[in-house]
Design a protein around this nucleic acid. Structure first.
Lengths: 110, 110
DNA sequence: CGTGTAAGGAATTCTGACACG
DNA sequence: CGTGTAAGGAATTCTGACACG
């Protein structure tokens, strides 16, 4: 079976330190670390233990902060994200199955 | 006159520390700093004075290192880059002029 | 010329905790 | 619950210099 890496382009590379993330988002380092504690973001770590974020993480952090400002609690946000993830996975699975069908029987539209 | 920002997307944002750049490129920090000393790359700086590179910088650094491996000297690389920059600017200028002509007299092909 | 390295200092980040509410 | 802060330490980065060639 073939796994397609989700286009590891610039957006998903974990290369940004927390200080820069703080600048980019306007969030405090405290907030950023707390959202990780609540399992909402998952930065990489260097050997030394420093966090490294991707641009995708940066955008996610902004969304999280907006929701919290709207009174949504972190555990609710986590649930939303889990649901969204399931929907995405189901969609992926559907596409993959269809891809296998097409591979065997040829692609035909409609 | 309208200036088009060169699509400040992920690729050109200066957000990567020298340690990560070193990992991404395989170059030593010494090399990376030296290429800056020779005016080949221009990272941003934080208030504290730390360097911040973009993905575009990362790719440029790899190209630079390859040329040096081929025996090209840094001042030659700088000259090449200056020439390339002039060509690009001339091309930009041409497009801009054509854009103004099109704006006044309408766009017509051929 | 291009790169390695040891040196000393400054900036950055880390964790765990106390505080407020 | 979400966030600020002071505390102490560790990791990261900086510059200028000496070395080799």
């Amino acid at each position: 079976m073939i796994i397609l890496a989700a286009d590891s382009s610039y957006k998903d590379k974990k290369v940004i330190t927390i200080g820069i993330v703080s600048e980019l988002t306007g969030l405090s380092e405290r907030q950023i670390r707390y959202y990780e504690e609540r399992k909402l973001v998952f930065p990489d770590r260097t050997k030394g233990g420093s966090r490294r974020y991707s641009f995708a993480d940066v955008e996610l952090l902004v969304e999280i902060a907006n929701k919290i400002e709207d009174g949504v609690q972190t555990f609710e946000i986590r649930q939303e994200m889990a649901k969204q993830k399931k929907r995405n996975e189901a969609e992926e699975h559907k596409k993959m199955i269809q891809g296998q069908i097409n591979a065997r029987f040829g692609i035909r539209k409609k």
